[in-house]
Nucleic acid binder design. Structure first.
Lengths: 147, 147
DNA sequence: TCCTTTACTTGAGTCATTCAAGTTTGCTGC
DNA sequence: GCAGCAAACTTGAATGACTCAAGTAAAGGA
């Protein structure tokens, strides 16, 4: 199904702004709101930042987008929904990279003990340094290359 | 070792405010900054909120406290450091509960593929409803009790 | 006890995000 | 094709968590 169909299926109206958001997020790599806003304006002309926030929330509630909120950095969005893949986040530059889970099909969805909670989702974030930032750290401080 | 010793070991000065923070966080249950501030003021009299922020950062950098930052809710702190246990977070009331990992000793620290990242930490958050909020949801809307 | 450095205070500032009120537009039903 | 209504969008202001900056107080080694 195309984006317009998915929007309708979620009970949302089809607008140029929302189609542009879907395409921008889909073609981008875990973009933040500001970057999505820029991309949308390039595609369809001036759209207010608030409209982007509003639509992103609607799209997320409708299950068309997934929201990623690494501690200490602005919210990002991706179109890969429905699986429960996880994310690598670079401590230095904030880059986010998808990663499949190590433990099978419904990974990490079952904690050792749920303490009576009704668990519906597991968020897993691996923190570290991405390859470019590793290289940079190595060349800047050769003695601490292993960090 | 007591808190004063741990502070010194981390290269930090021992002050009444910091000891009060350690005790407040240690006796509390994943408190946020505002609650810690209240607790500290009850113990040692007026301490500025900024001092609490500053100290919490210092204590976290020194490895005496662990910071938990669930998406969409203010930062919380706990004294259980050094293991890599995970957290259950209630979507409704924000309560945070410790949980050991399902997959052994160094749980989840190894993603299926690290994409070249140098991973040093894994954050795992299970989202759901805590027992009191489940009960509340059940009595409020019996037809959706399973949600 | 002095002196340096760290911690604390007060006050202002930032940033991502939300709220509110009014206008425009998609889309259902005539 | 057109009217009417709810959803979406615009503009502008507000919020909340947190940080920055400059000056004062106090910890702890010399």
């Amino acid at each position: 199904m195309d984006d317009a169909g998915r929007l309708r299926q979620a009970g949302l109206r089809v607008t140029a702004a929302r189609l542009a958001i879907m395409r921008t997020v889909g073609e981008g790599d875990h973009l933040d709101v500001e970057a999505i806003h820029r991309g949308v304006c390039e595609r369809v002309g001036q759209v207010s930042l608030q409209a982007v926030y509003d639509s992103l929330n609607a799209l997320q509630r409708g299950g068309l987008l997934r929201r990623i909120e690494p501690a200490g950095s602005p919210t990002r969005y991706e179109t890969r929904v429905g699986d429960n893949h996880h994310h690598l986040v670079c401590r230095h530059c904030g880059r986010v990279t998808d990663v499949d889970c190590a433990v099978g099909h419904a990974p990490c969805l079952e904690p050792a003990s749920d303490a009576g909670y009704l668990v519906d989702e597991a968020d897993v974030i691996y923190w570290g340094l991405c390859p470019p930032c590793r290289a940079e750290a190595r060349s800047a401080r050769p003695d601490t290359a292993r960090v």
